[in-house]
Amino acid sequence: MEQDRLYQDPDLADFYDVENVWSADQDCCRSLAEGCASVLDLGCGTGWLAAALAAEAERAVFGVDPAGAMLDIARARPGGDRVTWVRGDGRSVRLGRRFDLVVLTGHAFQVFLTPEDQLAALRTIAAHLAPTGRFIFDSRNPAVEEWREWTPETSAHRIDHPRFGAVDAWNDVEHNPATGVVTYGTYYRIVADGRLLSSRSRIAFPPRPQLEALIGQAGLAVDTWLGDWTGAPWTPASRDHIPLGRLLRS
Score class of each variant (00 low, 15 high):
15 F>H: 02
229 W>R: 06
65 D>E: 08
59 R>G: 13
211 L>A: 02
204 A>C: 06
70 M>L: 15
213 A>G: 10
226 L>V: 02
243 P>K: 00
127 A>W: 12
147 W>I: 09
44 C>Q: 05
51 A>G: 11
216 G>V: 05
204 A>F: 01
222 V>A: 04
150 W>A: 07
100 D>I: 07
171 N>Q: 15
129 L>R: 01
33 A>T: 04
245 G>W: 00
175 H>S: 15
57 A>M: 11
27 D>V: 12
33 A>N: 00
44 C>R: 02
30 R>D: 14
99 F>N: 12
196 L>W: 07
223 D>V: 08
190 I>D: 05
241 H>S: 03
22 W>N: 11
218 A>T: 01
88 G>P: 09
197 L>W: 02
169 A>K: 05
166 A>N: 11
30 R>G: 15
161 H>P: 09
206 P>V: 00
232 A>Y: 09
210 Q>N: 10
195 R>W: 07
73 I>L: 13
75 R>K: 10
88 G>H: 05
104 L>I: 12
42 L>C: 10
193 D>G: 08
40 L>Y: 05
210 Q>H: 07
221 A>W: 04
155 S>W: 02
80 G>P: 01
56 E>F: 14
47 G>A: 06
104 L>Q: 04
150 W>S: 14
150 W>G: 09
123 R>M: 04
151 T>M: 07
84 T>W: 01
44 C>E: 02
126 A>L: 12
184 Y>P: 09
131 P>L: 06
65 D>R: 00
143 A>H: 03
120 A>K: 04
75 R>A: 15
173 V>I: 12
1 M>L: 14
56 E>I: 13
240 D>Q: 08
225 W>I: 04
43 G>F: 07
237 A>G: 09
118 Q>L: 07
6 L>M: 10
98 R>I: 12
24 A>F: 11
108 A>W: 06
186 T>H: 14
35 G>M: 07
18 V>M: 06
166 A>H: 14
219 G>D: 03
184 Y>W: 13
22 W>S: 12
203 I>P: 01
225 W>F: 08
15 F>L: 10
219 G>Y: 00
141 N>V: 04
95 L>S: 11
175 H>V: 14
36 C>V: 15
190 I>S: 09
220 L>H: 02
218 A>Q: 03
83 V>G: 14
232 A>I: 15
103 V>C: 13
57 A>T: 07
156 A>W: 09
187 Y>E: 04
106 G>W: 06
7 Y>T: 02
101 L>N: 03
200 R>A: 14
211 L>I: 00
149 E>G: 12
184 Y>L: 13
101 L>F: 12
146 E>K: 09
48 W>E: 13
137 F>G: 01
19 E>R: 07
